[in-house]
Design a binder for these strands. Structure first.
Lengths: 175, 175
DNA sequence: CTTGAAATACTACTACG
DNA sequence: CGTAGTAGTATTTCAAG
């Protein structure tokens, strides 16, 4: 006996799976599909099918399964920050006054509304939150800082780390 | 005379535009297109055209222009980190030994190869770099930390901020 | 449960007004 | 920009592994 197919159905119901690794339930072809779609999802289904050596219907069914399973969260257009007039990126460490649930909830609600806020996470360590904010230039960031960030609810301290050079910024996972 | 159409073709050659804001050269319809595609780019062109109240060919021409101009950097599938077995996110502050060009170049080259590294930026302040890394769990991160991060070239210090809760993580720009 | 071939419906795309 | 026509694709159906 040589290499035998163990499974016949990859069928990943990944949405609520956190115990087992759903990636283990994906075969070679599913991975190839995901790698391609993570790189370029504007490709037609027939081209994709050809790339992964599958018929168009079979390929389409797999893609749909991957979407329904939640593994593919969505398909979106990525906008070039510079071209969109948001060439400046700032990473911000935030310390709150008090560490109460209300305090955190208030901050989180307000933080999400900050224009250009791309990420906001609760972290361990010397900060309570890290945020990343895209804005036009240092002037516009200074305005944002003075008019909005400092007035976020419950903020004790804000430390800003200006990004001088973006080495890597990807949405691609290793599969 | 009421509101008159000033332009007929927005034609944004945004690739190398950093002097003027390319967003100012986009009309209401282009913005609507970008907003939609940033949210869901799997929509068909006819549906998109209907949403922005345009004929299908006209809409397609605009989308192609937006792609050619570089404002749309690409269309990609987003993968759910948890479902992909990378439910843990860590933000890392890095301080290098020496601040020489070679030192920076070496680090950057190596940092990009760290599996699960999603972002890597040169920053101002108490760190030289911020990196964000996606990994499975604290065990796998610990392994990564001990086997790879600590051996990145020229690293003096690494401070890790574990993400306890992801409040916001978006690819969408405000338009 | 998956695959691939064929048929249909729909869409992308082109030419033109 | 919109209309009309063509080419190609997505999608369904079905038979087979």
């Amino acid at each position: 006996m040589s290499a035998t197919k163990v499974r016949s159905a990859p069928a990943a119901s990944a949405a609520a799976q956190s115990q087992t690794d759903p990636l283990q339930s994906l075969d070679r072809i599913d991975r190839a599909i995901l790698r391609q779609l993570q790189t370029d999802a504007s490709i037609s289904n027939v081209s994709l099918a050809a790339k992964v050596k599958l018929s168009a219907p079979a390929c389409l069914r797999r893609v749909e399964r991957l979407k329904e399973s939640g593994l593919i969260r969505g398909v979106v257009a990525l906008i070039d920050p510079k071209a969109a007039g948001a060439g400046m990126l700032v990473i911000i460490g935030v310390v709150l006054d008090r560490s109460t649930p209300e305090s955190f909830a208030d901050f989180e609600k307000a933080a999400q509304k900050v224009p250009g806020c791309m990420e906001c996470h609760v972290v361990t360590g010397e900060f309570d939150y890290f945020m990343t904010i895209r804005t036009r230039d240092s002037d516009s960031f200074n305005r944002l800082h003075a008019e909005q960030l400092l007035y976020l609810p419950g903020v004790r301290q804000i430390r800003s780390f200006m990004v001088l050079k973006e080495i890597l910024s990807t949405t691609k996972f290793p599969l």
